[in-house]
Amino acid sequence: MAVLLLADVNDGALATDAVAKALSAVKGLGEVHILVAGTSAAAAAEAAKLDGAAKVLHADDAAYDHGMAEATAALIVSLAGGYSHIAAAATAFSKNVLPRAAALLDVMVISDVTAVVDADTFERPIYAGNAIQTVKSSDAKKVLTVRTASFNAAATSGSAAVEKVSATADASLSKWVEDKVAASDRPELTSAGIVVSGGRGVGSQSDFALIEKLADKLGAAVGASRAAVDSGYAPNDWQVGQTGKVVAPTLYVAVGISGAIQHLAGMKDSKVIVAINKDEEAPIFQVADYGLVADLFNAVPEMIEKL
């Protein structure tokens, strides 16, 4: 059977990394058709380049341009007939849409899949990653979101056909008003090779600039612990952890982060973890490959200077 993969499109651009990783996760389940919803022909063309996509379905209608759940879920349901699996990267967009589509299909959603065992069986973290559960679905169709940090991105050397699908969107339930997305030249948090994160120890919003400076020196994305976000030092979309984003970069630098369970849930699959903290008892040192017990206000400027 075939897989319908819902693509993330942000402001007309395909979230290539997320879609490419979700594609890797599901391509063993059958022929993959990528669904691009919205008016962006560029996003559909970009999706067509992903290796392993058999075709791209482009629902070219402005009603889908802002990823509204009601219209997008209805679109998925209208296409669901030919598919055994409906999947997407586990992003804010698909976590909004796929459970709605699943309920309309009278099936359960399987969220944050970290491994595909077979067509019915999947691994996923529960309790903030403190346990990994293998579940087997008895539903006729499987609807799942895929945790991108667990999979490598598919290459972009393909050339699948783009097929238009007719769309009948009812936009009466909800209306998009505006997006407030911070423009940044830094890499995107969930796909960056290096992430530098600050915690409560950073102490203030103005001192968080130090974390950003180190990140820029390393060409890294900036992250933050929930404590730092709750204290107003950093915006919420920088949050790494159970209630924020899950990242698995090659290098994760945790500065002034104690290492609460909920933060570890978002970064413990990083390849190399560095912790800088003045409290040598901080739990972050139990997962760090390299730990430096030091005052971050001395250590970070020194590191910026010496890199």
């Binding site: 992003t91 804010a92 339930l173």
Partner: peptide
């Protein structure tokens, strides 16, 4: 009128 936490920042929508 709801402001939502999304991946890149915030989104505001108006729902019936």
């Amino acid at each position: 009128k709801v402001t939502r936490e999304v991946d890149g920042g915030l989104q505001t929508i108006a729902v019936k």
